[in-house]
Write a protein that binds this DNA or RNA. Structure first.
Lengths: 261, 261
DNA sequence: CGCTTATGGTTCATTATTTGAACCACAGCT
DNA sequence: AGCTGTGGTTCAAATAATGAACCATAAGCG
């Protein structure tokens, strides 16, 4: 792997820790030599991507990403555009609505509109969504090129609950079903007692960039209700996509897009 | 310079452009070979720090920094903590209040509370504040170790207006004055007709991490008023620092801090 | 129509950077 | 004192980065 890749992986690892970390820990976690880890950290620190506490000498994520994130949001205000749609969906469904985005090959939650029920599903902003075990992941994957689906299914899949589906053939079937009807359903895939549905927000070339999902307690959700939620999620995802790309790219169907599937 | 440094500089350059950029442009701007620039971009893209538009093939800042920024803010919610203090200061001063933070060796604006006057100073979130030509820059520098001040004064300084002070000796005097009274005053240093004052928000070890500043039209601001603003900025900066560090680190004066001045 | 000149993207021998075992310094502990 | 765990540094050896020259494609133009 390139040096840049290793340094960015270190940054990623550091960002996933639940607290500031020392040099030795970081080196071990990243399978890097102490000296190498240090050089990376120093270099990252120069550019503000990490910072070291002067007292404890431990490292944490720096403030450079905050500036970059502002730039990104200024030109590409995905969340800002999506927010009102999510709020509307949360209002009409009365269940927890969350939005995810692909970042560095993973799907992570970028916004949550909480349900107003006392008994509700809690989703943390920033939490990662496994592709095979969440409605969002399935919806995302279902609209990816076939080659990528197969590449994903070839890897070992973690079983989070008794209901988590890890069989590639079963998953293939679910993905086809999801692609056909436009939304996915995850029945207790990540956590017991939770059912959820999701639809992808796609770029004009058809590639998903994230997902709109509704999560509800299994106990109060009928099969009819979850399907209705799915339809609503699709409508919301499409509305976000249209608003997001609509103004910048007048032509929705590019003839020169080079899909590989 | 290290490969990592070069790649992060590329990212920085890309983020400063006002639109998406092509490979050749990026390579030229960063003084890199086309092949090298491309390898960096591919590597950065793998980790979500840049993304390439599939149609135009141009590059823009990706979504990885957004995730990192969330992590950073979750553990280190500088802005969230500062916000109410800034709002209070904006209310009492009736002028534009802005907060800056050091990021990658530069001071950049991270929040602005606009004045409610029609005739007011506009500061953009994200704008960079030169150390020698802004109240924030001077306030920041004045509380840095002497060695860093000298290193900075040794570099050539840009003259933004007729009033910008670029003479190292004069600046040294102003910095001493600033350090003595706790706040800086910039008289049309960056833009004509604007007077501003700033105070640093310092970490427990005494190092500044950012600045609180008040900017007002010169025409309605007396010498007495700007001094009063300065005193208020100091109070606000100290309050933010206390709130920010107070709960985590009970002891304010660390004996093992290793200052170099 | 073919020529020119842009663009993005790729290759591979040369070269410079990265690497890591061993090292030092310091702090806390027995 | 000695031990053990930190963070941090060094320099010869190994490896990864580099860039001139290359290809492919598309747009502009006489």
């Amino acid at each position: 792997m390139s040096t840049i890749g290793k340094a960015l992986s270190l940054l990623d690892t550091l960002s996933r820790l639940d607290k500031e970390a020392g040099l030795t820990d970081i080196a071990n976690l990243c399978a890097l030599d102490k000296a190498t880890a240090r050089r990376f950290l120093v270099e990252l620190e120069k550019h503000g991507f990490v910072e070291q506490d002067p007292d404890t000498r431990r490292y944490r994520v720096g403030s450079a990403p905050v500036r970059l994130a502002r730039v990104r949001e200024a030109r590409f205000p995905f969340l800002r555009i999506a927010m009102p749609f999510l709020q509307a969906l949360a209002g009409s469904s009365t269940e927890t609505v969350h939005l995810s985005e692909l970042s560095g090959g993973r799907l992570s939650t970028i916004h949550v509109e909480d349900s107003s029920w006392a008994h509700r599903i809690i989703v943390e902003v920033g939490s990662l969504l496994p592709f095979h075990a969440t409605a969002s992941g399935l919806a995302f994957l279902a609209f990816c090129p076939k080659a990528e689906i197969e590449a994903f299914l070839a890897k070992p899949l973690e079983k989070f609950t008794d209901h988590t589906i890890v069989d590639p053939d079963l998953l293939r079937g679910m993905l086809e079903e999801t692609a056909a009807r436009g939304f996915s359903i995850s029945h207790q895939g990540l956590e017991a007692g939770v059912i959820s549905t999701a639809a992808p927000v796609c770029a004009p070339d058809g590639r998903p960039i994230g997902c709109v999902a509704i999560a509800a307690p299994l106990s109060r959700t009928t099969k009819t209700a979850i399907h209705e939620f799915g339809v609503q999620a699709v409508a919301t995802a499409n509305a976000i996509s249209e608003k997001y790309y609509g103004s910048e790219k007048p032509m929705g169907t590019s003839t020169k897009s080079r899909r590989t599937d």
